[in-house]
């Protein structure tokens, strides 16, 4: 007989193994069969090849859509971070009348399905006679990214910054100087987190991009037409590539954040 304690420990190990297996199974299958030397990304594994990645890089439409995605994600990420920061600063520091209501309104899009947001914008474009383009996709992504950036930055606006800002004002700094020399440098990690987060959300967003684009499309929309053709190793290769890029962006973001924190800690002697 096993003792109760070692049985409990075994149960924990088995559970963790099973659930990590469940979480990683599809990703592993995706990556392994992107190297499949055959027409179908299913067992048996017929040998290792990179030809599907070659096909991917030779796929002009896919590469164009990748470039489009980067542009849209950079644009909507940057604009939403700037607008989100300004709104957070205005609400936290100047507390205009009706601030709680504005705060609610700004985060409201987080609670609405992307499909509904995309459809509303589709109707609006139709009424105004604006044709679909990458710009309209970016506008749609700004709608979903702005509340995200605002929430992240607003949550990091602590009181210690208020004191630093007030000290700077007492010493004669104008509003612009306070923003540039005190607020932004102190909030840099939050601003960076907001940008990285909004970038990845835009990079991965499908349904709004699908509804609001027509000729120039983003990567997920192009992937969609690739995936619709059924199981094929090129789709595996594309999926593996997207995964790698996203992870790389996140690791870079994390490293930059760490580096900054260390510098910060060193600077104040902590």
């Amino acid at each position: 007989m096993m003792s109760r304690r070692s049985f409990a420990r075994l149960a924990v190990v088995v559970y963790v193994a099973l659930i990590y297996g469940f979480i990683f199974l599809p990703v592993l299958v995706l990556i392994v069969f992107s190297f499949q030397d055959g027409k179908l990304p299913v067992p048996p594994f017929r040998g290792f090849t990179l030809k599907w990645y070659d096909a991917l890089f030779a796929n002009r439409r896919l590469m164009d859509s990748l470039a489009n995605s980067v542009v849209v994600a950079l644009g909507s990420g940057a604009v939403s971070t700037v607008l989100g920061f300004l709104a957070a600063f205005g609400l936290a520091r100047h507390r205009p009348a009706g601030a709680p209501m504005i705060r609610w309104l700004l985060v409201l899009p987080l609670f609405v399905s992307y499909l509904v947001i995309g459809m509303g914008l589709l109707l609006m474009l139709r009424e105004l006679g604006i044709s679909k383009s990458l710009l309209t996709v970016g506008m749609g992504h700004l709608v979903i990214n702005l509340p995200l950036a605002f929430a992240v930055i607003y949550g990091q606006m602590g009181d210690h910054q208020v004191y630093a800002e007030r000290a700077a004002r007492d010493l004669g700094a104008g509003e612009a100087t306070v923003l540039r020399r005190i607020t932004v440098p102190m909030l840099w990690p939050a601003l960076f987190a907001a940008f990285a987060l909004t970038f990845t959300f835009s990079w991965d967003e499908f349904i709004i991009a699908f509804l609001l684009s027509v000729f120039d499309v983003t990567l997920p929309v192009e992937l969609w037409s690739l995936l619709r053709r059924g199981l094929n190793p090129q789709a595996n290769a594309a999926g593996s590539l997207v995964f790698t890029v996203t992870i790389a962006v996140l690791i870079l973001a994390l490293l930059a954040y760490r580096l900054h924190r260390r510098k910060d800690a060193g600077g104040t002697g902590r």
């Binding site: 979480i23 990683f24 990703v27 299958v29 995706l30 969609w224 789709a235 999926g239 995964f243 996203t246």
Partner: peptide
């Protein structure tokens, strides 16, 4: 795997 494209996750 939360960070894989969600299209690709379903396909996987």
């Amino acid at each position: 795997p939360f960070w894989t494209s969600y299209l690709v996750r379903s396909y996987s």
